[in-house]
Each structure stands twice: as C-alpha cells, then as structure tokens.
Design a protein around this nucleic acid. Structure first.
Length: 920
RNA sequence: GCGGAUGUGGUGAAAUUGGUAGACACGCCAGACUUAGGAUCUGGUGCCGAAAGGUGUGUGGGUUCGAGUCCCUCCAUCCGCACCA
C-alpha cells in the first residue's frame, strides 16, 4: 500500500471535525496554553502559500503543547470589516456582507485542507452583530471613563462628576485635551451643554474638533498609522490635513504604560523599538515666554532647556492659535498669505520638501525669561502644530533646523555650549561646557539642564516635562462597512451612549454605500434609523476596533451577558504565543495593548498585557517568471540565448514553468496573442528568467496552497513551508524544493511498509537504531523551544535516512517517531498511529522526550555532536605529542570499543587542557 | 539623520556555553536501473589545484591555545521613525 495522501488527509480531516478533536474546554484541570494567529481579513483573492506560513508554525506549536499535556486554546476567526469589501460594494452595489461571507467561505475551505487544529466552535467574525455588540459596548465603557493620573488608571466618569461637584477641577490630575480650571460652584452653575463639553475633555472616547488626516478619495479620515508616506495605506490615495469634528480615543493617556509594558513582554527588539519610536517619549521642559505688549504667553517644549540663553528667536506653527492675535498690522498680509500657502500643501508635499526654508516674521516679540531681551516671533511650517505645543524657542547655535532658518533670514546665532563652530554649523552634541549663559556658565550640559529647570520652577515660568509623540487615535470613519458608533444626540446636540440593552446598534441598510449629497457619511442615508426619535451618530468605527479585543472573545465566544466572563478570563488569562506580521507594529498591536490596559484598569481582565510572546513570520515572496520576447516581434528567445539582443521580459504564469522551462503548448493556449508565437529554443526548450517579487495576481507568480496540496498533500505543504527557513525570515517560494520533503514523507511511510503491506516488528532495537531515534527526539525537543521548525524537519530527514539504511521497522522505534512527527505531518501520523493498532488519536500522546542514556551509553562522557560525527574531549598532559595522544586514546578501553575499528581523522591538542579527537 | 535587524557555497540554510564551518535539502555532475520519467537508487559536489596541499563565514583590526560565534572599525542590504524641538 503506497502513501496516498489525498485519501488519508480527507479521512482524518473529516474525523477531526466529527470528533471535535481539537475543541478546548474552559473547565479543565490541565494547565492552559493560548496559541493565537492574527486573524485574516478575508479578501477576494483567497489565500496564497504565504498566508498560512504563520498558521502552520502556530499549529505545530499548538499540537506540540497538547502532546505536552496542556489544554490548548487555538482559535481562528475573521477580521471582516474593512475597506476592500466596501469599495467593491460601491462599484457593484453588492452588499459587503455578501461578499464578505463568500470570501470567508473560500478562506475556510482553503484553511480546512491544510489540517489545522483550530477549535472552530470558537470562531469569531468582527462583522457579526453578536460580536460587534461587544465592540460597541467597549466603546461606551471608554466613553464612560476618564484617566486618573494620580492613581494611574482609568476610572468611571461618575467619579469625576462627583469630584467636580465637590471640588471643581482643583487638584484633579486627569488626562485631558486641554487643562481646565473651574471651581465646584462654577461646575454646578454650568448648563447641561457646557458640562457635556467639559466632560468630553476628559472622557477616553471623546468628540472634538481636531486636525485629522482626511483622505478625499476614500471620503474618510484616517488614523496616523493608516497613513504611510503621506498617502493612505489602503489604496495609496493622497491625504490632507483638515479640521473636523471627530470621535477619538485618548490613547495618549496610556503612553507611559504602553512604554513600560514593553519591558515585560517577549517580543523582538525591532518591534518593541517600533512601538517606542511611535510613542516617542522625550524628556525636557515646558517654558512660558511672555509676549511684549500682549497678555498671552507662548508655551514651548524643549529637550534642551540648558540652551535657553542661545534662544535668539521663536517659531510658531502656522496653525498655532496665537498667530493671528499677536501679528502686527504691518505683517498681517504676509502672515495671512503664508498661512494660506501652507494649508494648501498636502502632507506629502510638506514631507517631500524638507530642505526649503520658509517662514514669516509676525512683527511680535517675546521676552527672554532670564535676560529680558526681546526675541522676534516668526511662523514657519517646519514647526508642527501637532507636536509639543506647536511652538519652539529657536536655538540656532545648537539645532540644525533653527540654524538653517537663522542663516536664511539673517537672525543672530549665539554659542552657548562650547565645542563647535556655531557660525558654520549647529553644534548638537549633548555634552560640553556652557558659555555665554549667565548663571549656567562653566556647567556641563547635564547639570545645566537640571539647574535651568530648577530656576524656572522657582520663578514659576517653566517646569520639567515629558512629552510624547503618540497622538490620540481618531476613531470615527465616514464609511459604511464598520461598527456603528453607539451614540445618539439629544435635542441640544449632547451625545449620549446607547443603552446597553439596546445593543447591538445594527448596521442599517442603505441605498448606496456613498456619502450623501451634502457630505454626510453613508449611514445618514438610512431611513427610519433613529434612537427613540433622536438623531444617531452616523460614523462607524475603524478597522482596528474589532481586532483590538478579539483574543478575549475566543475565551468565551458565546457569552450573551458579558464580552468575556470573569471565569473564562481567569483561566485563559492572555495569549502565550501570538504569531503574525510585523506590519501591525504601530496599529493593531498598540491598540490591542491599549484596550487590554483599559480593561485591566476597570477590573474586567487580570492581565495588563495581551500578548506575552510574539513572533513575526516573514513574508513568502513570489518567484516571477519572464519569457523574453524579441523587440518588435512575436518571437520568444530562450533566456540563455538572449545575449545582446533587445528583448522585452513578459511575466508568464508560474504554473506554465517547470525547472525554468516554459511549457510551450500551455503558453500558446494562455492568451490569444501568443497563439502564433515563434520560439528560438535551446535544444527544444525555452528557458525563462526568474525574479523575486511580491506574490500577486498581476505578476502571475501566485502559488495557492490548494494547488500544492492537490499535487503533494497537506503534510508536504506544512513541512515544506517550515523547511524553507526560519519563520521570521522572508523568503521566495521555490516549488523545486518540495521534492525534498515529499521524498522524506514517502520514505518515512515506507519504514513501516514492506511491499505495500504495513509490517512492523516487535524486535528489541539495537544501539544504532536507538541512537538515531534519540538524536532526533533530542533535536526536535530543543528546536521546539526556539521555534526552529526548519531544523526539526532536517532532523526527521536524517533519522529517516539512517533507519532506512538500517532497514529498521521496529515498533519501539517507529511509534515514538510517529508521535514526534505528528505536529508537523498530522494526517500521516494519525494514519500510521491507527495502523499501529491504537484506537485513540495520536494528539494527546505524551511527546517523546530525549533519554540521555541511549545517546551516550556507549560513549559515556564523550559528547556527541548532532551531525553524527563524534568528538571526544579527554583531559591529557599538555606536552603529549600527536602520536602519544593517539596511543593513549587507543589504550583507553571505552574509547577503543567505541572506535570499533574506525580511523582517527584528526587530533587537536590544546595545551594543558583537553584534546579533541575527531573520528569519522 | 536617529533607531532596529541581517551579511556563511550556485540556492534555501545548519553550526548548544567560543571547539571538525557548510548538517539537511534544492540544484548540478557521474553512474545504475528502467515500460524514457518532472520516477527510483548509488557516488560526488565551498573555492584554487592533477595531486600533495593551500584557502575560506561582507571589510580591516583585536582578545584567545582556538573566533561564523566575543570586542572595535568600516562596507552593503532590509525594516521602522523622521523638519518630533
């Protein structure tokens, strides 16, 4: 009986489904282990071989953990809200729910063929009302919470209201959009509208007029992480800055905790660094500058308060709120012109052009807090409204941007830290001696920073301050296909959350998936869609809303009372191993951590970090193939014969290429224009050239898992994807290498088969066989710790080759190997396990562990290297020559026995310590 | 510019705490078998050399009896952030 993978795989996939082999119990006495994949967005293109890479790795690990006696949670679901389905809906009129369901069905079909051990009873879909009712519920909780900095946690908004009623804003330390100052009397005297406005300043989900990234093409706003290089991440459309009334989440309140939490989790350094970068903590001081002949002050943030005596001018962002107030009548025209100019520039233009120095003098002067000198105030677009206070004290001597600006406009440059030539170039080093700085003179930079802050605090004009780059996350989207934000507005325009018993707020039907004629979001088209007659919020949540908490829902997916029960959460806690792409570094992975911390603060979960260990799987790239067509003809030249001739490379479908040779018949049939193509062949074949590119339909280099499974089986696909290299690495898909693992699987199968029949012997294994087995067991167990699945596959191959040479079909060798192999090739393992006479699934068998005695029995103290060659390390006198060493080794009884007639290949004598003897 | 990561055969890659560099696999070469196949099996395969031998982990240096591994310098590639004050 040969190895017929298709029958075997079908049989076991069906058996697993019927027996619910992989369902995880919430009432288990076993220790838990939670293995999670980043759930996919079900796109219309289906899966290619790159997508399952991470799923296969996590599946192997989940299966391994089950063998180890853990109760494993290994779920899968769909991140189903998103732009592509909606764009498709706009074009075709097809409801996105329908397209999404079709795509999910296709994904499921593809996933099922690979033999994953997912617990499908726990599947979640973010677009399912039973799921998004809880996404909406979470939004309401955020709306009903504020962040108390003195306790460093989120608290219910009613606590804050009580506080205001008794004390006003006195002594409150809360995360807010702007610092407010009012007494209890003032609070109590405020009308409902005003109180609502004040509270929005503190809520974790709030509505405010703010600068947003507006994408006209998509007709919606985008969060900072959804904008890459000034264009939208999805679609690549231009993005401009615009002031809009917008729902946002106060993630900035959690900046420090998001930073601190990174220390306690096991993620790659580069990913943590991305998040640190994104959060962008910087230490410095906030300084207030008085304005000449004006009541307002300008607050700036500086990381170099020590250089304050070098501040020779100030710069405000063109959008700064004080600009118009301080501009003198003489300067009004040029300032207005400049503001108008910069507001027209798109984000992209502004980023592309960082060399040109532009700016305008406002005519106003600030007063230097120490020297009392007048400092001119300018506006320039190199100062960003969104960072710090939108204003800087310019120190041209020690900041290169200020330097360029000063040079361009002929402003004075003063040296305050010795060590450079500041007239030539800004001296930016954060060390050196202070000069020209009054009371700071002679100090080192570090001391000077501390002293400046001390003096400023004393004088009440400034204070030490930590600033973060992290901005609040814009949460509303002017789109259809997302969770409706569960808010309604009363007659006064005050926002209220929808009552819990009225959730979910179901996404209404609309006639078109486009904004209304007067620019309202698509939901405004819905007829009779109101809340007890009141107006509803018509924006929807962004794509990342549903994915920020889905890992919790898997713990308790059918709970109708809570988003996750206390009991389920206390058992599963958080994700032990999370596998997914690094492209979510500053999006999903940051938002999910934020929400988890919020849940933790409110006491709904017990862990404040959601993902303990995270592995980023690499991308699998496509291996595009090109046929070379001679310029201006329909003649294709075999790649090796092209030489100097001018040819156009044309993408050809990789399925028509084998061993770099083009299947000419298939090629002619591919497209009409090639039907009459002529070929210049190389002994009858036409070679193609190859190039590594992103796997995509338009490059005709997509390989689907279905095609590979059809031809070689799911176990071969699983093993090959692992064998391709370390999971973290990106690598091109190369179909040729598949023959290596298919050959291995057949060989492994044949170990227990003689002339087609299943035959295993009950003989006692000999030392060589035991050693082959245990070397493999040892290697695979070690690799599991490091997630080096690629070398595990090698270990299986080596072991199988050795046992084939030894003609070993002994039960006591094969049985543990089948268990050892089962996470990798589960279908074959189950089949062999059944043939070995076992009635239960191989899944829960104890995983074989390495027994030292089998490995070293014959060599006692001699370490054995992995690749089967042996190295001895024996203490010997230092002055012994090579011949004497050999003689001594041969004289040793154990060594002689082990050598067993083999030749000593090399002797390395290390004076005074050890000797390495290599035999081979 | 700042930060992170990675550099090993024709290719994907191995190499426990520093101890035979290139395991395993692809590809290639030679051979066997055969109903001529994208099948199977055997042997070979870092580079130079007929061989002996030499040489070799991006570059240059250092530590060490011994370095792919540790330290320093430079170079290249990839990723993240970026007028962030």
């Amino acid at each position: 009986m040969d190895y017929h993978f298709s029958e075997i795989e079908k049989k076991w996939q069906q058996r697993w489904r019927e027996d619910k082999t992989y369902s995880a119990s919430n009432d288990s006495k076993d220790p838990k282990y939670y293995v999670l994949d980043m759930f996919p967005y079900p796109s219309g293109a289906g899966l290619h071989v790159g997508h399952p890479l991470g799923y296969i790795a996590s599946d192997i690990y989940a299966r391994f953990k089950r063998h180890k006696g853990f109760n494993v949670l290994h779920p899968m679901g769909y991140d189903a809200f998103g732009l592509p389905a909606e764009q498709y809906a706009i074009q075709t009129g097809q409801h996105p729910a329908i397209t999404t369901e079709q795509n999910i069905a296709r994904y499921r079909e593809q996933l099922d063929k690979i033999g994953f051990s997912f617990d499908w009873d726990r599947q979640v879909k973010t677009c399912d009302p039973e799921y998004y009712r809880w996404t909406q519920w979470i939004f309401i909780q955020l709306f009903d919470s504020w962040y108390d900095r003195s306790q460093d946690q989120a608290r219910p908004i009613k606590d804050l209201i009580e506080y205001f009623e008794k004390n006003g804003s006195q002594g409150i330390r809360a995360a807010c959009s702007e610092v407010m100052d009012f007494s209890a009397e003032e609070w109590n005297a405020m009308d409902e509208i005003r109180q609502s406005e004040v509270l929005l300043n503190y809520r974790l989900a709030y509505r405010s007029e703010s600068m947003v990234n507006w994408c006209p093409e998509l007709g919606t706003v985008l969060a900072n992480d959804e904008v890459k290089d000034g264009v939208s991440e999805r679609g690549g459309y231009p993005v401009v800055q615009k002031k809009m009334m917008q729902w946002s989440l106060r993630i900035s309140a959690y900046a420090q905790r998001l930073l601190d939490g990174l220390e306690r989790i096991d993620w790659t350094e580069s990913l943590k660094e991305s998040q640190r970068n994104w959060i962008g903590r910087s230490e410095g001081a906030s300084i207030h500058f008085a304005i000449k002949d004006h009541d307002d002050q300008i607050e700036v943030f500086s990381t170099r308060p020590d250089t304050i005596f070098g501040a020779t001018f100030m710069v405000l962002a063109p959008e700064h709120e004080l600009v118009r107030a301080i501009t003198t009548p003489e300067q009004r025209d040029s300032v207005e012109k400049y503001i108008d100019q910069t507001s027209r520039r798109s984000e992209r233009d502004r980023m592309a052009d960082t060399k040109t120095v532009t700016g305008v003098f406002t005519g106003a002067y600030a007063k230097h807090p120490f020297s009392g000198k007048d400092i001119p105030i300018w506006i320039a677009d190199y100062v960003l409204a969104g960072y710090g206070t939108g204003a800087v004290m310019a120190v041209p001597g020690h900041d290169s941007r200020d330097h360029a600006f000063a040079q361009n406009f002929g402003l004075p440059i003063v040296e305050v830290v010795a060590g450079g030539n500041v007239q030539e170039e800004a001296f930016e080093a954060k060390e050196g001696e202070m000069v020209n700085s009054d009371f700071l003179n002679g100090m080192q930079v570090k001391e000077a920073i501390a002293e400046t802050i001390r003096r400023m605090e004393e004088m009440g004009i400034g204070t030490g301050r930590i600033n973060y780059r992290l901005r609040d996350a814009v949460f509303g989207r002017q789109r259809y296909w997302g969770e409706p934000i569960p808010i309604w507005y009363d007659g006064k325009g005050i926002p209220h959350p929808v009552k819990e018993e009225n959730l979910p707020v179901i996404l209404p039907e609309v006639d078109k998936y486009l904004p209304t004629e007067d620019g309202e979001p698509p939901l405004a088209r819905a007829v009779d869609w109101n809340y007890n007659g009141f107006e509803r919020e018509t924006t929807t949540m962004p794509g990342w809303a549903g994915s920020s908490w889905y890992f919790l829902r898997y713990m308790d997916p059918h709970n109708e009372k809570e988003f996750v029960s206390r009991k389920a959460e206390e058992y599963w806690k958080n994700v032990d191993l999370y596998i997914g792409g690094s492209e979510h570094a500053t999006g999903h992975l940051l938002y999910a951590r934020f929400w988890q911390k919020f849940f933790f603060d409110r006491g709904w979960v017990t862990m404040d970090e959601p993902f303990q260990k995270l592995i980023n799987q690499g991308m699998i790239q496509g291996m595009s193939a090109f046929a070379h067509r001679k310029k201006g003809s329909n003649t294709f030249i075999s790649y090796h014969l092209v030489g100097d001739q001018e040819t156009t490379p044309i993408h050809v479908d990789v399925s028509m290429v084998h061993n770099d040779q083009l299947d000419l018949e298939a090629f002619k049939a591919w497209r009409e224009e090639f039907g009459k193509a002529e070929f210049i062949t190389d002994n009858g074949v036409v070679h193609v050239s190859r190039e590594v590119e992103k796997m995509s339909k338009s490059k005709f280099n997509v390989v689907t898992p279905d095609a590979v499974i059809e031809e070689h089986g799911a176990d071969a696909l699983r093993m090959y994807e692992m064998f391709l290299g370390p999971i973290e690495q990106s690598k091109p898909w190369n179909t040729q290498g598949l023959s290596g693992v298919t050959g291995f699987l057949r060989k492994f199968w044949r170990l227990s088969h003689r002339e087609g029949d299943f035959i295993v012997s009950d003989e006692v294994p000999n030392e060589k066989e035991l050693k082959a087995l245990h070397t493999c067991i040892k290697k695979v167990n070690e690799d599991m710790k490091n997630f080096s699945f690629n070398t595990s596959v090698s270990a299986f191959m080596i072991c199988t080759n050795e046992l084939t040479d030894l003609k070993c079909n002994k039960r006591s060798i094969i049985e543990p190997l089948v268990i050892l192999l089962s996470p990798f090739a589960p279908h074959m393992a189950e089949e062999l396990w059944e043939k070995l006479g076992h009635l239960d699934s191989v899944t829960r068998q104890p995983y074989p562990t390495h027994e030292e005695k089998h490995l070293v029995e014959s060599t006692k103290n001699y370490p054995v290297s992995f690749n089967g060659k042996v190295r001895f390390q024996i203490a010997l006198p230092a002055d012994m020559g090579k011949e004497d060493v050999e003689a001594s080794v041969m004289a040793d009884e154990r060594t002689a026995k082990y050598l067993d007639g083999k030749q000593i290949r090399k002797v390395i004598v290390v004076p005074g310590r050890i000797v390495n003897i290599v035999i081979g």
